[in-house]
Amino acid sequence: MIIDIIGDIHGYADKLTGLLEQLGYVHNGQYFMPPDGHRALFIGDLIDRGSQQLATLEMVFAMLDADVADAVMGNHEYNALAFATLDPGHNNSHPQRYLRSHNDVHTRQHEAFLAEIPFGSETHQYWLKRFYELPLWLETEYACFVHACWDVDSMAVLKPLLTATHCLTTHALEITAQKHTLPFEALERVLKGVETALPEGLVMVDKDGTERSQVRVRWWLDELNTRPIHQIARAPSSGLAQIPKDAMAENIDFALKTHKPVFVGHYWLTGNPEPLSIQVICTDYSAAVDSGYLTCYQLNTSASLPLNAANFVQYQHD
């Protein structure tokens, strides 16, 4: 079996159509049928940013319903649920308070989705229910699949809150959305990655204009706690320029505790696709911008290792 692992789509249905057709999938009037011996797997972040939100969701979920594909939840699907869910701890607040605040940054991140699927509409409620069907991670005998980071310690914290198939419930959403708690930090690890604190007093401004006192790190590298932040940070060059070259990473509590290959999205990579390490593949090559490409890694389940750059397929939309 070949698993076609497809990176973050972000509402670009035309790019998804192009990639599926390039991979040999054929639309039968209801969904895209894979070639013999193939199955698709979507690595999360189906929504936000692009102008074809509804079309993207309809394409992906038609394949899920036909049992020719699998998918895991991305942080954008999680954020959509939290953005639409009232915080039960503030039922009497005015204005109403949601699990994810409706500030300018969060609203701007979500505006493409809500432009097509109006907040509170029947269509909105339908797709929120469908998002709950997406597991936070999948593990098979041959590989591990998660949106941002395969952290078994964080998963152990989350498992008691989830369904048997590692899906959120409304209660789990409420619990994991409470900042400065262990479930919140565990959810952040799985869907957003590993971070380390910047030197005291230093902040970075991310691509959405948010000031951050922590920086995301490339957790797939070895010896994270013995390297300068510059060597392990996953941040734009403009952000790295604000960090002293001699600032060291400290207290990063992470180890990759599996011998299987791990597949993620999330990281907005550029350039020619290649494995991040001997064990980790990212299929997010910035499809949500004109200079990026929707990307797939074709995994042979009978020989999942070694990972090979030749297994990548990109849809060259330009």
Rank of each mutant, 00 (worst) to 15 (best):
A55V: 01
G29Q: 09
G89P: 06
F83W: 12
H76W: 03
A82S: 12
L81A: 09
E111G: 00
A69R: 08
A55T: 11
A69W: 07
H106L: 01
A112N: 09
F61A: 05
D65W: 01
R49S: 07
L41W: 02
A82Y: 12
M63F: 10
E58L: 04
E111R: 15
F42N: 04
A13F: 05
M33Y: 03
P34L: 10
S93C: 11
M59W: 03
L99P: 07
H106T: 13
Y25W: 14
L16T: 10
Q96K: 13
L57S: 07
R100N: 08
L57H: 06
A69I: 02
R97N: 00
L23M: 08
R108H: 12
A80G: 07
G50F: 00
S101R: 15
M59H: 10
Y25C: 04
M63V: 06
Q109V: 13
F61T: 11
M73C: 06
F61Y: 15
Y98H: 13
V26F: 08
S93T: 13
P34V: 12
D87I: 01
Q52V: 03
H94D: 12
Q96F: 03
Y31A: 11
G29N: 09
M73A: 05
T85D: 00
A62D: 12
L16N: 09
A84S: 15
K15C: 00
L16G: 07
Y98P: 05
V26E: 07
P35W: 00
V68N: 11
Q52T: 06
L64G: 02
D48H: 09
F42G: 08
R39V: 06
M59E: 01
L81E: 04
N91H: 07
G24C: 05
N92T: 03
H90D: 04
N75E: 03
N92V: 00
G44Q: 05
N103Q: 06
Y31W: 12
G50V: 02
V26D: 04
H110G: 04
E77P: 04
V68R: 11
H102R: 15
L86A: 13
L86Y: 13
A80S: 13
Q22G: 01
T107H: 07
I43Y: 00
A69S: 13
N75K: 10
P95D: 11
G89M: 07
L81W: 05
R100I: 01
N79D: 10
I47H: 03
L99F: 07
L23N: 08
D87N: 15
G18A: 02
I47Y: 00
Q52A: 07
M73W: 03
M63E: 10
Y78P: 00
V26M: 06
